[in-house]
């Protein structure tokens, strides 16, 4: 079971997470009492990287219209910044006393804080990207809701013209997201629903067409063709709602659920 639910987050955090946990184990196993080297330079490099990240993070918050992102990002940025202060403190303390035990503790807390803060930051950002995809899915649902007012060929042409680009965009975004996920089951669920949506789209257009021509001919079978059209719309909506549900899943949710 993967720990990080996207390949991007995994590639960024997995290596450092392993190193930090190894550091914690080393610290717990042996307070070996050796003198620490001068860590001023690597700590300074971390501090500069934190400053850049914090700047870009607040820029992202300022330009975003996503209220949840605006709420979630600042605490994560503060966490990263506070962790970098712990590292700076530790580095200063070690210069004065290379054997300082409190300094070693601060190094561990600082490294852990950077990891946790960066993780929270990336998750907040990722969730906001997912919300963007969900908005696209919801706009498709909105288009599908107006299927029932399509009752002439002219409307049908306009309906298809409007629906096609937003459906294509949704398919592209969901496809990219699926490839980003580390969780195989979630990937398969998205692939299955997306395939279903693709297969149902021409069926929907055909069902609307049959309804429109049946109605215009004034012949029997209007009710049946309307029922068929509504059935296809419902199936499409169900699949899109399933996509929305799966997009919001993380491996963490599933662990909790189990």
């Amino acid at each position: 079971m993967p720990v990080f639910h996207t390949k991007t987050i995994e590639s960024i955090l997995e290596p450092v997470a392993q190193q930090v946990s190894r550091l914690v184990i080393l610290h717990e196993e042996a307070e070996d009492g050796n003198a620490m080297p001068d860590l001023a330079r690597p700590v300074q490099v971390v501090k500069m990287a934190v400053d850049n990240l914090v700047k870009v993070g607040y820029d992202t918050v300022n330009v975003s219209e996503d209220q949840i992102l605006k709420q979630d990002m600042p605490p994560a940025l503060q966490r990263v910044e506070e962790a970098s202060f712990l590292l700076l403190d530790a580095s200063d303390m070690l210069r004065a006393d290379p054997y300082s035990a409190p300094a070693r503790k601060k190094l561990i807390e600082g490294s852990r804080g950077i990891l946790q803060g960066t993780s929270a930051l990336l998750l907040a950002f990722d969730e906001s990207e997912v919300r963007k995809i969900i908005r696209i899915c919801k706009s498709v649902l909105e288009y599908l809701a107006i299927t029932e007012v399509v009752d002439c060929m002219e409307d049908l042409v306009k309906f298809v013209k409007n629906l096609s680009p937003v459906l294509t965009k949704m398919a592209k975004e969901v496809d990219l997201r699926e490839k980003e996920l580390t969780h195989q089951v979630h990937r398969e669920m998205l692939v299955r629903s997306l395939e279903e949506v693709k297969a149902l789209t021409p069926v929907l257009i055909s069902a609307v067409k049959i309804f429109v021509s049946t109605k215009s001919q004034g012949a029997g079978g209007v009710k049946e063709s309307q029922g068929n059209r509504d059935f296809v719309v419902r199936k499409l909506c169900d699949e899109i709602n399933e996509i929305i549900r799966v997009l919001q899943l993380t491996t963490y949710d599933e662990d909790e659920w189990e």
Partner: peptide, 29 residues
């Protein structure tokens, strides 16, 4: 084409790895 924030997070993770390596080098030695 990763957004700038993701790129900066990667840079920080790499810098932290190097720092932890420096600390660990001492702890393991």
């Amino acid at each position: 084409d990763a957004p700038e924030m993701v790129r900066q997070a990667r840079v920080l993770a790499q810098a932290t790895s190097q720092l932890v390596n420096a600390i660990k080098g001492q702890a393991e030695g």
